[in-house]
Nucleic acid binder design. Structure first.
Lengths: 225, 225
DNA sequence: GTTTTTACTTACCCGTGGGTAAGATATCAG
DNA sequence: CTGATATCTTACCCACGGGTAAGTAAAAAC
């Protein structure tokens, strides 16, 4: 009850009354659908499942969505909307390329702990129709381009070590996108912890600089094979 | 024809003759199934699809597998087998923790460009039965434990900067696992390139150390917000 | 050649789930 | 209070796909 906003829960109340309030009911459908898609995947979630959790019947859903795919697409849209927001915020607050990348990692990690955000990267694009797919693809392309441009900026301004921005972006995006595969709201790691630690690990790397000379000696002679 | 071994292709020849050769035919089924699972996902791949690509009919598949899930599980087994091999290789060749992690990244990235390897991380575990799921989970747990232990070793021997091995492992594993989502055999990036660059990026980070002092000044005062 | 065994096909069953038709009931405007 | 409209239900259709039954034909054994 107290953490109602944070926990995935109980949107069936929206349908308790038959009062006319399409917006909140539509939202309730999306929330529970997103939840179920993340729990069981889109393919294994039937519209009956969604309806059941809302205490209504399947055909009622068709008052708010044309078909199952529209529900899915809407989840993608809401999720990509969240990401777009953070991208714009970061582009505004100017700083070095490295700082932008760091800010990106932090914010994006947080989005990957929100249902709609998780949907974007966790659900299977292959379930979308051709048109919807190209729409989603364009959103994702935009994200990728932005991240690469931040990295390129960093290389140009000297804050980031010279490297292939494409591969660096794949590496960072991969680490971040994978969060939506293992994160659980009631798990040991909070969204905050994940975000800060990822920002640190991905930018700084693993190498211990303080003892780098000492280890250099040892490591050279024992490199495997 | 020349790159036949590397390209995903044409296992229907195994069924061209009715000669009795169960092993190679079974293998052919698995290869084409894995291919289709990666192209269309397990759920959207029907046994008819698999059979069609092999120029046989659906019931013929039941001579080699009890049901659809057994095909899926076998893909997982072959994939995890590949990973297990590299883990053992690395544990043998002793070196610093950092070197082991680096070797892990390199080898694991390569596995993520092989069909069976990709299946392990790309396919949806939710399609597995309870028993199969727990089997696959135990494989994955083992991989995760090994990676964390390599990181811990590195922290202990001073080659890796002190950090939470759990988060560092999530970060590295995420970047690597995500490869199987975007890699394509005929793409611009070769498996070799990906593996070497990832090993570098993930261990060294993005920060440009050579100019770190200069940038430190600039960055402090311009950090966003 | 004859028999036995394996490999495969055609024809079918049936559960599941997306989607629709048509009707019932509550809400709201006047 | 009454009609109009939005909301939701019961009952249904049908395509798809996993899985099976039963029979045919090729290959191996002797």
């Amino acid at each position: 009850m107290s953490k109602d906003a944070a926990l995935p829960q109980s949107h069936w109340k929206a349908f308790a009354s038959r009062r006319r309030d399409p917006e909140t009911k539509r939202e309730a459908v999306l929330q529970t659908a997103a939840q179920l898609f993340l729990e069981k995947s889109y393919g294994r979630t039937s519209l009956n499942d969604v309806a059941e959790r809302l205490n209504i019947t399947k055909p009622a859903l068709y008052h708010y969505f044309r078909n199952k795919e529209e529900i899915l697409l809407e989840c993608y849209r809401l999720g990509t909307g969240l990401i777009e927001e953070i991208l714009n915020d970061i582009a505004d607050h100017c700083g070095t390329g490295l700082e932008k990348v760091e800010a990106f990692i932090y914010s994006y990690a947080n989005v990957m702990t929100v249902n709609f955000g998780r949907c974007v990267m966790r659900l299977d694009q292959g379930d979308l129709s051709e048109d919807a797919l190209s729409e989603v693809r364009s959103y994702k392309r935009k994200i990728d381009r932005r991240l690469r441009s931040f990295i390129q900026e960093g290389i140009d301004d000297g804050s980031i070590t010279p490297c292939d921005p494409k591969i660096a972006a794949f590496s960072i995006a991969g680490a971040l996108n994978w969060i939506c595969m293992w994160y659980e709201a009631d798990g040991a790691l909070s969204a905050e912890e994940i975000a800060t630690q990822f920002a640190r690990t991905l930018t700084q790397g693993l190498v211990n600089r303080k003892r780098s000379r000492v280890n250099a000696k040892v490591s050279k002679q024992e490199t495997m094979a």
